[in-house]
Design a protein around this nucleic acid. Sequence first.
DNA 1: AAATACTTGTGAAAAAAAGAACAACCATCT
DNA 2: AGATGGTTGTTCTTTTTTTCACAAGTATTT
Lengths: 219, 219
Amino acid sequence: MMKNILRKTDSISDHTVNRLSLYLRCFNRLRDEGVKTISSHRLAGLFQLNSAQIRKDLACFGEFGVRGVGYYVDDLIDHITRILGLDQQFRIAIVGAGHLGQALADHGRFHSQGFSVTALFDNNPDKIDRRTRRGIPIIDVARCEEVLARDRISIAVLAVPGQVAQAWADRLANAGIKAILNFTPVNLRLPPEVKLNTVDLTVQMENLAFFLSHPEARS
Amino acid sequence: MMKNILRKTDSISDHTVNRLSLYLRCFNRLRDEGVKTISSHRLAGLFQLNSAQIRKDLACFGEFGVRGVGYYVDDLIDHITRILGLDQQFRIAIVGAGHLGQALADHGRFHSQGFSVTALFDNNPDKIDRRTRRGIPIIDVARCEEVLARDRISIAVLAVPGQVAQAWADRLANAGIKAILNFTPVNLRLPPEVKLNTVDLTVQMENLAFFLSHPEARS
DNA sequence: AAATACTTGTGAAAAAAAGAACAACCATCT
DNA sequence: AGATGGTTGTTCTTTTTTTCACAAGTATTT
């Protein structure tokens, strides 16, 4: 059992981690297609990315490749799966059983390798104790701390109205949650040990609006 | 009527545009709170960002501030709204009336300033010609091109299964769509004049998984 | 009107990210 | 075994992004 998967004590950037995730998806597809080895150059073609970038991303965690050959797809899948922690199971709770919360709770990608949604919290009595179409139980927010501990939840998804987002962030952090995926349009303040990723739909849409309005400003 | 809102012919980075969107949201809140002027320094505090960054972002588009005073909130709202193109109305079509597609179609943030969802496409006969809870009509995909033109849609949101994502991207590009928000886990190829933003939930989750597994790797 | 306390816009510096280049290595062919 | 063609890991360069630092400008106080 290796202590530390990182080769250097350097910190790893979000950019790198996010690309690893993309690589992994690609490697899984390649394996399904029966591809045994792949070179960084060919990979770069698939992603329209620079091959040195890919080699560097992978080299952060070990020497996975073989000079003159490339990378063994199976190997790489094993390694990246472990690096991303997907050999463990992360249980997810979603806070807010509105349309978005329910759609996310049932969404396949929250139930794929490494992840499963086990609880959906809401304060609407009409929803409490029912289940989503996929069978995720909708639980009274009053039982939040109890259920987070019982189910050993490690990731919380925030799909509540913006007005209560910060209060929820505080509550989740207090309950020991260390990772939050935030769908609210709020700049959440969290203790430094909590990792926060925000999916801001407004930002995405306004970005499109900008480039539609200024095609000449495209990078 | 000014020709070109940009001061320099430089291209503007996604980072800058995305921050403008965050600033705008903040300015709107400040206006509601009755704040008349704000300095980049105070703003930096609110965003836990560097004040020079904020000044630079704003200075890409003109000299909006007043030395010794700061920025007039009302002014800034006007300017950024125009810069982002939110003085126009962008009509959105969502492709795929699954749980996610329907949740997005009804979601408030796709109906806020500058945006409105007018059509939701699907090929499931049970869904076609019905409406979402908010009243967005679910339309047969066969009528896609017709409706895109009729409603003068400028933004398409892809919420279809990954297997058909590229085919849809091609179809939308062919229909003249110039901006796509992609929720599928697929590396879409599009002609260069089409702006693509991808929201990849798997990447977001796996990023959290990584940092949960390697707290020491946090930047 | 001079002094003081702020604040912007921007050029220069620093840091971070991406790309180019190449020694070191592997497999295969002759 | 030596030569050939291909590929990685990594150093060095370039580009991009962020931060620092300060002249230039504004309001306010004395």
